[in-house]
């Protein structure tokens, strides 16, 4: 059985859209001239920091990829990459956020 490269279901395709948007957003944020350094904590200062920005997008993407995998027989290579990489990124960034915010200053 040949494994498709591109996602076949709506959930998988949307996961891909959000993954592309995540990469684009981080690229845009890194390229912007930023007079104030990214705040170290979520909610501390004016914007979300870079990791938080990626976390939000990758969260949507990983959830949709997982849903496609579990419920809609989405078995494409791209979907595996998005789900595994997105899920790993979400766990890693979430642990970092918790280390920053949940410890008393």
């Amino acid at each position: 059985m040949a494994i498709a490269l591109a996602p076949q279901t709506a959930a998988g395709k949307w996961a891909a859209v959000f993954a592309v948007a995540a990469v684009l957003n981080v690229a845009v944020l890194s390229a912007l001239p930023n007079p104030v350094f990214y705040p170290q904590r979520l909610g501390d200062g004016t914007g979300l920091e870079l990791g938080g920005a990626f976390l939000t997008w990758a969260g949507v993407s990983a959830v949709l990829g997982l849903v496609g995998l579990l419920h809609y027989r989405e078995r494409s290579a791209l979907n595996w990459v998005i789900t595994l990489f997105g899920g790993a990124a979400v766990i890693w960034l979430a642990v970092q956020q918790l280390a920053l915010t949940a410890t008393p200053l």
């Binding site: 709506a10 959930a11 949307w14 959000f18 904590r41 979520l42 909610g43 979300l48 938080g52 976390l55 939000t56 969260g59 949507v60 959830v63 949709l64 849903v67 979430a94 956020q97 918790l98 920053l100 915010t101 949940a102």
Partner: peptide, 23 residues
Amino acid sequence: PWASLSGPAGIAATGAALVAILC
């Protein structure tokens, strides 16, 4: 104390609901 994860999780819920309703 994990309130910082609330926003990203809420946006994930919004995205999933959008896909569910539209597609």
